[in-house]
Design a protein around this nucleic acid. Structure first.
Lengths: 246, 246
DNA sequence: CGCCTCATTGATCGTTGTCAAGCCGGGTGG
DNA sequence: CCACCCGGCTTGACAACGATCAATGAGGCG
């Protein structure tokens, strides 16, 4: 799809449940239905199904933090610049994931967020969200758990991504991706679309594109991964898990 | 810390103010004094000056999460086990730092926490803390900012620690340590005590002890670091910052 | 004194980064 | 339709950084 989604067509202040129709997340998204103790006061904190075309930027580093974003469909990446000036991908975000948490500390986005493919997000006004928290313990707990999940992910990434060998990191990446993609869509399709470029995967895994390429070839030879035209399968997940420790 | 808002609204009753006497953190700790809007409801949240001897464990991985801990003095480390079974240090915690945040996601501690040297912490009961949040917005903001700082630290660690060369990582570590130690103690002593073992530093920086040792020797030769009998100095911080990009 | 852990230094090996060339597919323009 | 280009990807040759293995030294404690 070549996304004629123009900024002028953004659905401003769409709060009706209808905006969630067709959203792949609707079953498990907390935004899809009113909260148990919500009397409609939360209406103004969410802007639904905000579209971002492939390659477009959602937010920029060092700009004021206003909102968190939950991915409805598609995929995002966040990246930073090293002291030497080259870019490093710091995270991939799939349907259900919340983007922007790295900005909580000093209320400025710490990275640039881009759409890997055509994507839709729900925008959450953070100030309003916080102000509702004091009256709604469930909402507060939700936020804490969202942040907690993010922390856990980062912690795991950090402790393992550097100490594993490259082929383990690659395999682990695909295993993790597989798990995240199949849990968000009910249908556990065996052939999954790879929603990002290999360059970005390499950057995220702290290796060169060449090394990634070699490792993909090796994993294919070993029958641990099938990858063709941006669709992949993991033929032997149990062996893969044994290798990566996931 | 920096946020005077949180400080003025931190609603903790001091069970015994005396418990804070002699605590090195007393000037900048939220827990150190009672606050105007507190009616004594928060009395039971904090357990003060809990001592942990060198080498002792504060909490164990996969046990239920009950409390966060703020370091009063001394130093802690957290470590995990890799799939291969060897231990990796995932963090160092100095006076003022809050430990246990990695447990928020699934309410189980994700790592083992040990005292590097004799240490004292203040224990914060998390459930009670959360229950007070709904009535005290400042408390909620404080928690969010604590977690946010943790996230930022992890994010930075993750994006740099693997892409930098070993000598840069080592120098960066000492620079960071220097900054954290001098900001917590008012007196910016030039010779600072190194509150952890070199083995643990190596593990944290994802390198072998041998490599760390070689790099320390190199940095000494270059006049970027003095280190003798567990006390260190950074003679040329501006050059060091230029090298590490910090 | 012996034993232990931690730290240092040297020699060698292996994984991964670097540099270079070639391939493939999609897009554009002739 | 084809020629061409260009970015993304793959493969090969080589070099370098850091890990491994091994030996030694330094300090704490019975």
């Amino acid at each position: 799809m070549k996304s004629s989604l123009a900024r002028s067509e953004w659905p401003v202040a769409v709060t009706t449940a209808r905006a969630c129709d067709g959203c792949g997340l609707v079953q498990r998204c907390f935004l899809a239905r009113p909260l148990p103790d919500d009397n409609g006061e939360c209406r103004d904190i969410v802007r639904r199904r905000y579209p971002i075309a492939r390659g477009e930027r959602l937010y920029r580093r060092n700009t004021p933090f206003t909102s968190l974003f939950q991915v409805c469909n598609g995929s995002l990446k966040t990246q930073r610049e090293t002291p030497e000036g080259d870019l490093v991908v710091t995270g991939f975000f799939l349907p259900g994931d919340v983007v922007g948490i790295d900005a909580l500390a000093d209320r400025q986005y710490q990275s640039d967020a881009y759409a890997n493919i055509d994507t839709e997000v729900c925008q959450l006004d953070f100030e309003r969200l916080l102000s509702h928290c004091t009256r709604k313990p469930g909402l507060n707990a939700w936020i804490i758990s969202i942040i907690g999940s993010y922390v856990r992910r980062k912690d795991c990434d950090l402790s393992w991504s550097c100490s594993l060998q490259t082929h383990q990191r690659v395999l682990r990446f695909f295993l993790d991706l597989h798990d995240r993609l199949t849990q968000s869509s009910q249908a556990p399709s065996s052939r999954l679309a790879l929603p990002m470029k290999k360059q970005d995967i390499a950057s995220y895994l702290h290796m060169t594109p060449e090394t990634l390429s070699r490792n993909l070839a090796q994993l294919r030879r070993q029958g641990l991964l099938q990858l063709h035209e941006n669709r992949f399968t993991l033929p032997d997940t149990t062996r893969a898990r044994a290798i990566t420790g996931l």
